[in-house]
Every structure is written in structure tokens, then in C-alpha cells.
């Protein structure tokens, strides 16, 4: 049995706990609602995985504590991860993953496999989009990290390292205090493909789409069109999950197999660092008004 501690601020990790209840080979051995309680649990209990749910600011301190104790870490939000915590995980050789990565999203996982299998041939122009509603909470946030990190990581996972980044962004506060925040990012992959990432905090609802073109064909997806059950009329909205497509479950099952050494981690701490490098390059490009060259070692094909 793999032993899990669910951590995070009081009352915020319900979804994480429920997800672990669905994993046959894991059990929750503790719930930590503060840094000090996490410290205590890690000292007195046998633990394999620390699952960090919602934290209001950086998850860095939580990650540091768990990594120093040699525990594998699953963090709900990739954008809450700081460079220091990630580096520590890399150093201690613990598995660090974040829950909203696209590497376990079935449509992105399939697209990744198709690209690797050569379905579209030589990749040409890759278009990715992610959108979420405007919000008053977006004021201090970095759009590239908040929304872009997932797409950047998927691009790197699928097409290899990034050579150059050009980004532009616009931000506006409207009368109701909502921040409309929008960015266009162009990435030249070291393999030659040209990627276009559109990030929008100006949408009515959450939205994601991709269009992957190559000299042998094109693969497209749009979350607004992949709706097998559509509810209309009435007051209620419909929320459904499909058996086998539950992201939280898929990733946790993978994570357990990693801990049991049955599987190699699909996402490493150094991938997160590389995604953060792309985020930083995009920010730098906005600041300078020029493209930014990313010189990177390249450890994934």
C-alpha cells in the first residue's frame, strides 16, 4: 500500500482526498492543514507521497518540507510551484508533478502519441489556445505561468526544446474591477516547428483548443465541440465525469506505479524548471519588446 498525506490549507483538499479514495493501492495516512502539522506527520509516520492541494500563495514551503523528507510530491496547481522547491526535488530525486498538467489529459496525451508516431508527418505550425474568464483576482498574476505553463510543457514534451520566444500581452481593468488579460506567444521549436500559443483571461467559460499541422495532415481539437452530453434549458448546469477519463484518478494511478517503481515518471522536476524557463522568456520578451533566445540543454526528444 502506498501511503499518502493530503496537505493544504484547511478545508481545501476535499477533492484530492476523494480522488485518493478511488485509488485501490493507496491509503491516506494523514491530513495536514498547516506547515507545522505536515512537519509533525512526516516525522512520526511512514509516508510515500505528499499531495499538496490548494494553497493561497506559493507552494514552495510545502514542497521544500516534503522534498527534504524525501517524499514524492503531487501539487494541485503548477503555477504555485516556485523554482527553489522544484530544484530541491530534482536534487533529492523525488518525483514532483502538478495536477493540471496536460500530460494526463486524454486529448493531449493522444495528440502527443500521434505526433510521436508521425501521424501528421513533419510538424509545421502548431496552434494552442487556453482561455478562462476575466477575474478581479488576476491583477497580480502572470498569465504565462497561470495558463501558459501547461501548454509550454506539452509543447516541449511533444516537440522538444524551445529555441526562441516572442510574446506580447495586453491587460485592462474594466468598470466592474475584472482584469481582462490576454497574450500571444510565438515559440520556435529547436526541431523547426513554429508554435502559436494564445492565452486569454477574457473568455466566458474555460476553453482549450489545438490545431497541429504537418506535411502529412492536421489534428484539431476544441473543448467547446467535444461535448457528448449537452444540457440546455432549466436552471441547473451539468457536470459530468467519464469513467476512465478522470484526470485526477489517471494521474494518481500513474503516480502510485512510479512510487512502486513499475513505471517511469511521465513528468520530472526538471521538466517543470524548463517550462518555467519558457515562462520567464515570455515575460522577458514582453518587457524588451523583442524575441528572447532560450538556450537549453535538451534532455527530451
Amino acid at each position: 500500500m502506498v501511503k499518502v498525506v493530503v496537505a493544504g490549507e484547511v478545508g481545501t483538499s476535499v477533492k484530492e482526498s476523494q480522488a485518493w479514495f478511488r485509488i485501490k493501492e493507496a491509503e491516506i495516512v494523514g491530513v495536514a492543514d498547516s506547515l507545522s502539522s505536515l512537519g509533525e506527520i512526516l516525522q512520526g509516520t511512514e509516508v510515500d507521497i505528499v499531495d499538496i492541494g490548494s494553497v493561497s500563495e506559493s507552494a514552495d514551503q510545502w514542497v521544500t518540507l516534503a522534498a527534504q523528507a524525501g517524499k514524492h510530491i503531487l501539487c494541485a496547481d503548477g503555477s504555485a510551484l516556485g523554482r527553489e522547491g522544484i530544484r530541491l526535488c530534482d536534487q533529492y530525486g523525488v518525483v514532483l508533478q502538478y495536477a493540471n498538467t496536460l500530460r494526463f489529459a486524454p486529448e493531449y496525451e493522444q495528440a502527443h502519441e500521434q505526433i510521436k508516431n508521425g501521424t501528421i508527418g513533419k510538424a509545421g505550425v502548431i496552434r494552442l489556445r487556453r482561455g478562462a474568464p476575466a477575474s478581479a483576482e488576476n491583477a497580480g498574476k502572470c498569465l504565462f505561468q497561470e495558463l501558459g505553463m501547461r501548454e509550454f510543457d506539452w509543447l516541449r514534451w511533444t516537440f522538444g526544446e524551445v529555441e526562441r520566444v516572442m510574446a506580447r500581452e495586453v491587460k485592462h481593468m474594466n468598470e466592474s474591477g475584472q482584469i481582462v488579460y490576454y497574450a500571444l506567444v510565438m515559440l520556435r521549436m529547436a526541431g523547426g516547428a513554429i508554435a502559436h500559443v494564445e492565452l486569454s483571461l477574457a473568455d466566458g467559460t474555460e476553453h482549450a483548443s489545438f490545431e497541429l499541422t504537418g506535411d502529412q495532415g492536421m489534428i484539431t481539437h476544441d473543448s467547446r465541440e467535444s461535448i457528448p452530453i449537452r444540457w440546455s434549458g432549466g436552471e441547473r448546469s451539468l457536470s459530468v465525469t467519464f469513467r476512465g477519463l478522470d484526470l485526477m484518478q489517471r494521474q494518481r494511478e500513474h503516480f502510485v506505479r512510479c512510487v512502486q517503481k513499475q513505471e517511469v515518471a511521465r513528468l520530472h522536476a526538471r521538466d517543470l524548471l524548463a517550462a518555467l524557463d519558457i515562462v520567464a522568456a515570455a515575460r522577458e520578451s514582453v518587457k524588451r519588446g523583442q524575441p528572447v533566445k532560450l538556450i537549453h540543454g535538451g534532455d527530451e526528444g
Partner: peptide, 29 residues
């Protein structure tokens, strides 16, 4: 702009992406 010839064997570019800033500050892809 990033331009390239990636879809066909030929002399001219067959693909690319262009990023524009207007005088008003509007950004265009």
C-alpha cells in the same frame, strides 16, 4: 515573424506566424 518552408519542397515559404503591434497598442497575431 517566424517563417519557414515545412510542408512542401519549394523555394518560397509555405508557413509562418506574424506578431504585430498597432500604433494604438492593440496586439495582432
Amino acid at each position: 515573424a517566424e517563417l519557414d518552408t515545412r510542408f512542401y519542397e519549394m523555394e518560397v515559404e509555405d508557413c509562418g506566424m506574424v506578431s504585430v503591434e498597432m500604433e494604438s497598442g492593440v496586439i495582432v497575431g
